[in-house]
Amino acid sequence: MTTLTTPPTTTLQLSPEPGSWVTVCEEGRLTPGRGVAALLPDGRQAAVFRDRAGRTYAIDNRDPFTGAQVLSRGLVGSAEGRPFVASPLLKQRFDLETGRCLDDDEVTVAVFPVRSRYARET
């Protein structure tokens, strides 16, 4: 008897709370330089990004200046070697590693740890 299996896939997970991991999507579905929104179990949203070097980041999707869930639609770039996303509404830039607003030192967004996991489908 022959068993057919598919090759392993890599899923992207993030940790909205210490000690818990949530599967977001297959890693290959992320387009470098663009973001996607992910709904978390507690109703919050995360903005997930992959840069052109293959690093992944996840921050809160809520723009703290407007309250809109739009950061996943922002423009990705870098300033002084730091990756950021610029809000599509008012253009404030948020560091993807720290969540710090590069345009207002008093404002931050949450940052979520991200990991890749291999999952074999049968």
Results as ranks from 00 to 15, higher is better:
41 P>T: 06
92 Q>E: 09
6 T>K: 14
81 G>Q: 06
69 Q>I: 07
121 E>V: 05
52 R>E: 07
36 V>Q: 05
51 D>I: 07
44 R>K: 14
38 A>R: 11
106 E>T: 13
100 R>V: 09
53 A>K: 15
30 L>Q: 15
6 T>L: 07
63 D>P: 00
43 G>I: 11
51 D>K: 06
52 R>F: 05
99 G>W: 08
79 A>F: 15
16 P>A: 09
93 R>T: 01
56 T>L: 05
38 A>L: 01
101 C>A: 12
2 T>P: 00
24 V>M: 12
17 E>N: 07
115 R>F: 00
3 T>H: 10
98 T>W: 01
46 A>C: 03
107 V>D: 02
52 R>G: 05
78 S>Y: 13
49 F>E: 01
48 V>P: 00
20 S>M: 05
94 F>L: 03
28 G>R: 13
49 F>W: 13
48 V>T: 06
102 L>V: 00
100 R>S: 03
46 A>M: 07
56 T>I: 11
27 E>M: 04
65 F>A: 07
23 T>W: 00
60 D>G: 12
12 L>K: 09
79 A>D: 10
61 N>R: 10
119 A>R: 15
95 D>Q: 03
104 D>N: 14
16 P>E: 08
20 S>V: 06
116 S>Q: 14
94 F>N: 06
58 A>W: 04
120 R>I: 03
115 R>L: 07
120 R>E: 11
98 T>V: 05
94 F>T: 02
27 E>P: 00
117 R>Y: 07
45 Q>W: 10
98 T>P: 10
23 T>Y: 01
66 T>L: 08
60 D>F: 10
103 D>W: 09
37 A>P: 01
65 F>T: 07
20 S>K: 11
92 Q>K: 10
105 D>M: 02
11 T>P: 00
77 G>W: 03
62 R>W: 05
17 E>K: 15
5 T>S: 09
63 D>Q: 08
62 R>Q: 14
90 L>T: 13
117 R>K: 15
41 P>R: 15
17 E>R: 15
15 S>W: 02
41 P>C: 05
22 V>T: 11
19 G>W: 03
59 I>L: 05
84 F>Y: 15
98 T>H: 02
20 S>L: 04
46 A>S: 01
99 G>K: 14
118 Y>M: 05
33 G>L: 01
35 G>E: 04
56 T>F: 04
97 E>I: 02
73 R>Q: 15
87 S>N: 09
84 F>S: 11
3 T>M: 12
51 D>P: 02
100 R>Y: 01
40 L>S: 00
88 P>E: 12
74 G>K: 06
78 S>V: 08
43 G>C: 06
48 V>F: 04
85 V>S: 09
61 N>T: 10
100 R>E: 03
122 T>M: 04
21 W>Q: 09
91 K>G: 02
104 D>G: 06
82 R>P: 00
48 V>H: 04
41 P>G: 12
77 G>S: 14
